[in-house]
C-alpha cells in the first residue's frame, strides 16, 4: 500500500523467512510440550485423533482448547463451549489491535492472513520484533514466525493424541507450567531493559487478580479488562518508543 513511503532495510524474501523462523523457534520449542499435553488430555476426554488434531488446525488457541477438552469430558453443550471459547479468546481482539497497528502499512489481505495466526505467544514475540516491520519483505518474517508456531502446535497435538496413554499423568500435569514459563521468559528481558514495562505488567497482574477473585468476572473477561486498563497506565508513564 504505502510501503514506498517507509524507509526500508533491504532484505530478500528468503532472508526474511529464515529470520522469522529463527524468531519463532522459542515458540516452536515451547509449544511442543504443551501441545503434547493438550493432545493427551483431549484423547483422554474422548476426542478422536482426528478431532484432537483438527481442533489445533482450526482453533489454534492453547488455553481454549484445554478448556474445551475438559468441558467435552464433562459433557458440556455445544453453546456453552462456544461461548466460553469466545470469552476466553476475546483478548486476541485487543492484541490484534496492537499487532495491526504495528503492521499498519501492510495490504489488507496480508493483515487479514497474519491476524489469523495471532496467539498470545506469536503476538508477544512479534511485538518484541517491532523494528522488523519496516524492513523490506518483512511480511515473510511474521509469516514464518507464525507458521513455525502453528506447525509445532498442530504436530505436537497430533503426537500427544497418538501417545495418549503412554505419557504419565504427572508429567503432563507438570507441562501445564510451560505456557506460564514462556510468558515469563518473554516478559523478563524487556523488564530488565525498561523497569516501566515491569510496572505495567505488575499492575495488570493485580488488576486481573482483583477482577477474577473479588469482582468475580470470568477468566476471559478479567484478562481482557486487566490488559486494557493495565496498559492505560503506560500513557502518562512511558515515552512513545519505550516499548520498541
Amino acid at each position: 500500500m504505502k510501503e514506498e513511503a517507509v524507509v526500508q532495510t533491504q532484505q530478500s524474501i528468503g532472508t526474511a523467512f529464515k529470520q522469522g523462523s529463527v524468531a519463532g523457534m522459542p515458540i516452536f520449542l515451547g509449544y511442543m510440550p504443551i501441545a503434547i499435553a493438550y493432545g493427551v488430555l483431549a484423547s483422554q476426554s474422548g476426542l478422536t485423533i482426528f478431532e484432537t488434531t483438527m481442533m489445533s488446525v482450526l482453533v489454534f488457541a492453547g488455553a481454549a482448547q484445554f478448556m474445551a477438552a475438559n468441558m467435552i469430558a464433562q459433557g458440556a453443550l455445544f453453546l456453552q463451549i462456544v461461548v466460553a471459547t469466545f470469552v476466553l479468546n476475546f483478548r486476541h481482539f485487543i492484541m490484534s489491535m496492537s499487532f495491526m497497528n504495528q503492521l499498519k502499512h501492510y495490504s489488507v489481505p496480508w493483515k487479514f492472513g497474519l491476524s489469523l495466526g495471532l496467539t498470545d505467544e506469536t503476538f508477544a514475540v512479534s511485538a518484541l520484533h517491532k523494528k522488523e516491520a519496516h524492513k523490506e519483505n518483512s511480511k515473510f518474517f511474521y509469516l514464518a514466525l507464525i507458521l513455525t508456531a502453528y506447525f509445532s502446535w498442530v504436530a505436537g497435538s497430533f503426537a500427544g493424541a497418538l501417545l495418549g496413554e503412554i505419557i504419565p499423568k504427572q508429567l503432563s500435569d507438570s507441562m501445564g507450567i510451560a505456557l506460564y514459563a514462556m510468558f515469563i521468559g518473554l516478559l523478563a528481558p524487556s523488564v530488565k531493559k525498561e523497569w516501566r514495562i515491569g510496572v505495567v505488567a505488575v499492575v495488570s497482574m493485580l488488576l486481573n487478580y482483583m477482577f477474577s477473585e473479588f469482582v468475580g468476572l470470568e477468566t476471559g473477561w478479567a484478562i481482557v479488562l486487566a490488559t486494557v486498563v493495565g496498559s492505560l497506565i503506560a500513557i502518562p508513564m512511558m515515552e512513545e518508543d519505550d516499548a520498541q
Binding site: I197, T227, A234, M238, E240
Partner: peptide, 24 residues
C-alpha cells in the same frame, strides 16, 4: 500509540497471574 505499544506487556502480566497458581 503508547497504549497499543504497552498492550503486549499488560497482556503477558494478566496471562501470568493469578493463572499460574492453578497449575497444580
Amino acid at each position: 500509540n503508547k497504549w497499543l505499544n504497552a498492550i503486549p506487556f499488560a497482556a503477558l502480566g494478566a496471562l501470568i497471574f493469578p493463572g499460574i497458581m492453578t497449575v497444580i
